[in-house]
Nucleic acid binder design. Structure first.
Lengths: 129, 129, 129, 129
DNA sequence: GTGGTCTAGACCACA
DNA sequence: GTGGTCTAGACCACG
């Protein structure tokens, strides 16, 4: 349960991200029901409103659809969408960061070097956890 | 003047980032005066308080120093500091993005490929402008 | 509540100093919520922006962290940081005062004597309150 | 000519302090004329208004008196007043700093130790200059 | 409810 | 004219 109420990322965002990862990884399969709002809220010790907001976002992304009275279900191509979404988000983030770097007069090579350093740093960080 | 009042990034942050880029790029040189609070506020169609807040942040970063009654000036090693700051920010952004990607089950190779695609895309974008 | 709107020290600075003292003294404990922006603003008869500015400074010092929607909390090592900060500030003030005294041709012994007199005077003042 | 247009102390304050020190040290004697406003302004490369403001403050302190058409003269007991003024300012600064330290739960011994450290530090600083 | 940002406009200190 | 502080009151994001 990687939810951290401290930390800069909003709770609802963390919850949405976490579920999106589970869907992408195939933990929740197509047409399978997700945990109910209240159940998840209790499990995460979080306000139901917050879970609602996370579910809203996932529904807006088309990953998930609601059946009134039954619950939330993973969309047919949910796993695929989730993976695309992650990659798209990554691409956008990289793009913006690179443009900011170029604006600050950093060369493409320099930016690439910083990226490699970060990639190596992330590996170390993951191994230490 | 790349200031977007509707984006998610606070105005004062955008202003600070923009000026930091100008200092890093050597547009404002050491011991040279920056635009006055009010002048920049008028130019950006923004409240003077907002510019002030941006300048405050730059001053805390040591990029710039203010002299009451005189104006704002680029610090001696301002350009150098600005470049370091930019690289550090880039590293942090990359690190977070990479960790998010790993959490979404993307391999290091896959993440690297997305980065290369973004880097190429940024080149194209720059050339078209 | 020792806030003086007419003194030379900015209000936000006074507020930050005061809360830092309370944290240093252990009045607010680690992970405990501080008074909300608006509550403190009302209590001090001050604009919420002013309190916000004080809290900003404390947050930058690492004494305190803010959670949107929840409130402000004392950081884990907040009390320790507050005490260090107080000592550092004291050292800086003494240093400047001593240099000013030396510039005015006062000997080290003379300056020391004045300090001892002030220390005794502070004791008396504290006892009378 | 220890006037530093950068640095946090206002120019007029620096000028007043400097002249007060000269008077305290007996460089300017009783009933002796001080440099004229314009002469000093030129010498310090400073706006005459700024020198005026410094002279105003010294006159308010009673260190100096103006003879219209003749210039500024050191008051009879000027040197004595200057010395007292320095010591009084020092005493007040120490007192305030000590009270702040006590408020932050520092013991008198601890405060004394910090003072001794600052005194030693000031010696080192002076020797290095 | 909480904190975070922003505007409009005021007054002060300094050069 | 410059920067620095403050108020009054608005709107947003979050829980």
């Amino acid at each position: 349960m990687p939810i951290d109420p401290n930390g800069p990322v909003p709770l609802y965002q963390q919850i949405a991200d976490y579920i999106r990862q589970l869907v992408a990884a195939g933990v929740f399969r197509s047409a399978e029901a997700l945990p109910s709002l209240r159940a998840l809220a209790v499990q995460l010790a979080v306000n139901p409103n917050t879970v609602q907001r996370a579910y809203d976002q996932l529904e807006r992304e088309g990953l998930v659809y609601a059946r009134r009275g039954l619950g939330l279900f993973v969309a047919e191509r949910g796993a695929e969408l989730a993976r695309n979404k992650s990659q798209e988000a990554l691409y956008q983030t990289f793009m913006q960061a690179i443009l900011a770097g170029k604006a600050a007069q950093l060369s493409g090579e320099k930016i690439g070097a910083i990226f490699q350093r970060a990639l190596a740093g992330a590996d170390v960080k993951a191994r230490n956890q």
